[in-house]
Design a protein around this nucleic acid. Structure first.
Length: 471
RNA sequence: GGCCCGUUAGUCUAGCGGUUAGGACGUCGGCCUCUCACGCCGAAAACAUGGGUUCAAGUCCCGUACGGGUCACCA
């Protein structure tokens, strides 16, 4: 078999959706795995909804994920252009050829007429299908018309899907569909076929929602006398309620996850595991995936998008990173939150303690904001730990910190343990009040780290404030 | 509603005629411990359902139920 030529063909009607990203990923992986070609084509024939911003957002999303394309917008290739609205002549020529050969015909029915028929069918509770009114009419290009594809009335079209197996579509469920609008812009099925043919795509991998288009498209390939590509339909991604994933399920754009502090590798990792597996392995780098990915291992059942597992995957990616690398990557998130962070020793220390405790950079900022600004003390924690009983402890630690030569771990440890021993209590009785005073809550990294990160001045200030609040 | 596709724990999945039905997320318990987390140990939790075929069925066939997709001059 020839080297696979696959494509991702989004409509630029919005950002890059999680589902679209996975479709792109599967195609990309297959191309990289097989040494094939990954083509990006923009299907912008819906002029009402397509926007230039959406094109930009999609390219940005793909690039962020690390999915580069061999042919397509901005990189060019042997079959330009890669925007459907720039290929109108091509569709027209193909449509005219089909008309000439009697495989398609001009239809002069108005939308209004068809709407009346549709309503009537609905009232009669029958499925409306275009009745072929204009099938025998002569071609008159001077009259407003659309071009309809002539579908065989009997029989069925069968194909073998790479992931779903054999699928048969009876022709009597099809109709003579419009392939070219009155203004010459093609409809999806026709545009995709003409482009896939002319771009020499030999493997079409796309979402499950296109299964029902496949037979119609195959009929068009055959009418055009072109080779039929292989198809692979990937199962849908659902929300927790098993309905197709949509905005109401939460963030669905790839860049939203970037903005929440996910790593692109983690998003790729999670998405590939949704509907594909390789033994018991959970964590994959892109390089590993390129080695082991196989379309044959793509499952055929729709999968529920699970944000918790995606966070876990992200955490797995974050944990082995050095504090330096984490700091470099986390910095923009701290800055975006208006916290005066810089890529310095402090940030690296914050990241070192955050690493085991937070799954995304968004969580870093949320959970460790107190390292950069004073936060309100949790009332319950305050009531429990900042009391007349603990006041002496706070004072001792305060004076101890003030007196230490350095804030290295050993002297801090000696200070805390000494204080606990002198008071005849466990370390917890000392650490918890200090923790509340310094971080505002009862859960935080170890106290020595916290003090080192805050620095002597800030530590003393917060302890003083806590002591003063007890009165 | 017609047509198409699907159905292993709450979720993602392994399984490819004979398994104590495996792994992961999440949940619960324990250990560790200055709290939280990490880590480690452990637990609960699944073959939608009814018929076949077979010595033997989560694995094959049919029905039912449930879920999804699709029925445009959208893609």
């Amino acid at each position: 078999m020839d080297k696979p030529r696959v494509r991702f063909a989004p409509s630029p009607t919005g950002y890059l959706h999680i589902g679209g990203a996975r479709t792109a990923l599967f195609n990309w992986l297959w191309a990289r795995r097989t040494g094939g070609t990954f083509i990006l084509r923009i299907e912008d024939t819906d002029r009402e909804r397509s926007t230039q911003q959406a094109v930009g957002a999609i390219l940005e999303g793909l690039r962020w994920l690390g999915l580069d394309w061999d042919e397509g917008p901005e990189v060019g290739g042997p079959h330009p252009p890669y925007f459907q609205t720039q290929r109108l002549d091509l569709y027209k020529a193909h449509a005219e050829r089909l008309v000439r050969e009697g495989k398609a015909y001009a239809c002069y029915c108005t939308r209004e007429e068809l709407e009346v028929q549709r309503k009537a069918a609905e009232a009669a509770k029958v499925q409306f299908r275009y009745p072929g009114t204009c099938r025998g009419k002569p071609y008159d290009p001077t009259r407003p018309h659309v071009i309809r594809f002539r579908v065989p009335e009997h029989g069925a079209t069968t194909f073998v899907d790479l992931v779903k197996g054999a699928i048969a579509t009876p022709h009597d469920t099809l109709q003579d569909e419009v392939i070219l609008r009155y203004d010459g812009v093609p409809l999806y099925n026709f545009g995709a076929v003409v482009d896939d043919v002319t771009m020499q795509v030999n493997l079409v991998g796309r979402g499950d929602d296109h299964v029902n288009n496949t037979a119609r498209q195959i009929l068009m390939y055959q009418a055009l006398d072109y080779p039929v590509p292989t198809f692979a339909h990937f199962p849908m991604i659902l929300g927790a309620d098993k309905a197709r994933l949509s905005k109401r399920h939460g963030a669905t754009s790839v860049t939203a996850y970037r903005d929440m502090g996910y790593l692109p590798q983690a998003v790729v990792n999670y998405l590939v595991r949704l509907g594909w597996s390789h033994g018991d392995q959970e964590i994959f780098t892109l390089e590993e995936l390129v080695k082991v990915f196989d379309l044959k291992d793509v499952g055929q059942t729709a999968g529920v998008f699970n944000p918790e597992k995606m966070a876990w995957v992200n955490h797995e990616w974050l944990k082995p990173m050095s504090a330096e690398e984490l700091a470099r990557r986390a910095l923009p998130y701290f800055q975006a939150a208006g916290l005066g962070a810089a890529d310095d020793q402090k940030l690296r220390h914050v990241c070192a303690v955050a690493r085991e405790r937070a799954a995304t950079f968004g969580d870093y900022v949320r959970q460790f904001r107190y390292f950069y600004e004073r936060v309100e003390l949790d009332p319950k924690a305050r009531a429990k730990f900042l009391t007349a009983d603990t006041r002496p402890v706070l004072s001792q630690i305060r004076d101890g910190v003030a007196a230490l030569a350095t804030l290295d771990t050993a002297p801090l440890e000696a200070l805390f343990q000494g204080t606990a021993e002198r008071r005849g209590v466990g370390l917890g009785k000392v650490a918890q009040p200090v923790r509340v005073a310094l971080t505002g809550g009862t859960a935080s990294p170890g106290m020595y780290d916290v003090i080192q990160i805050l620095g002597r001045e800030e530590t003393l200030a917060r302890l003083d404030a806590a002591i003063a609040s007890i009165g």
